[in-house]
Amino acid sequence: MLFLVRMEVDWPKDMDPEAGRALVEAERTYSQRLQRYGKWRHLWRIAGVFGNVSVFDVDSHDELHEILSNLPFFPYLNIEITPLARHPSRIDAPPAAPP
């Protein structure tokens, strides 16, 4: 199951700088592990925003929820999730059955 996930960080203005650096490193480590395992398929920064758009490839809604809720940034994230389906005009899509 593919999901487009938009995440924007609502960082506390009074966040301790050292705690912030530790969170950033933990987030990087966690997200890179998910990318290596193929769960976090795409990760794109949104220009001018402390956030990203990502594509996740998971087996269930529950797996996506678990992945997102375990993000170190999770308490500070505003998240929008859109389920994705293959488009029939993709060049790598199998031919559609005739109508």
Rank of each mutant, 00 (worst) to 15 (best):
E25W: 02
V9T: 10
I79T: 13
S54L: 09
V5N: 00
N52K: 03
E66R: 05
L64T: 06
P12T: 04
V5S: 01
V9A: 08
P83T: 12
R36P: 01
L4T: 05
R86N: 07
E63G: 10
T29P: 03
P98F: 10
P99S: 13
D16C: 11
R36Q: 11
F56S: 03
W44E: 01
H87W: 05
G48C: 04
P99W: 12
E18Q: 13
P12Q: 04
V5M: 05
L43M: 08
P95M: 04
N70C: 08
N70Y: 02
P12C: 09
K39P: 01
V5K: 00
W11T: 09
D59H: 06
E63L: 09
R86Q: 10
I91R: 13
R45W: 02
I67N: 07
P98A: 15
R28G: 04
Y76T: 07
D62W: 04
P72V: 00
D16A: 12
L2M: 12
A97I: 05
R6A: 03
E63N: 08
D92N: 13
E8Q: 14
S60F: 02
H42D: 06
V58A: 02
D92E: 13
L84D: 04
D62N: 11
T82A: 14
E80F: 01
E63T: 11
H65T: 12
R86T: 05
Q35K: 11
L2V: 04
M7C: 11
P95N: 04
Q32V: 09
S69N: 12
I81M: 10
S69K: 11
I81P: 00
P99E: 15
D92Q: 06
I91L: 12
Y30V: 09
L64Y: 05
D14K: 15
L2G: 00
N78H: 11
P95C: 01
V58E: 01
E27A: 06
P99T: 10
E63P: 11
M15Y: 09
P12D: 07
R45N: 05
N78L: 02
V49Q: 05
D57Q: 08
I91D: 10
S89L: 11
P99N: 14
P98L: 14
L84C: 12
Q32L: 15
I81T: 13
R90D: 13
P98M: 11
R45V: 15
V5G: 01
R86Y: 03
R6E: 09
A22H: 14
D10P: 00
L2T: 05
H87C: 13
E25F: 05
F73D: 07
V53K: 03
E80Q: 15
I46K: 08
V53R: 07
S69L: 05
E18F: 04
A47E: 14
L34K: 15
I91G: 07
A26V: 03
E66H: 12
A97P: 04
V49M: 06
H61V: 09
K13C: 02
I79H: 02
M7H: 03
H87F: 08
M15H: 04
E27H: 15
P83S: 09
A26F: 00
W44C: 10
W44H: 14
H65Y: 10
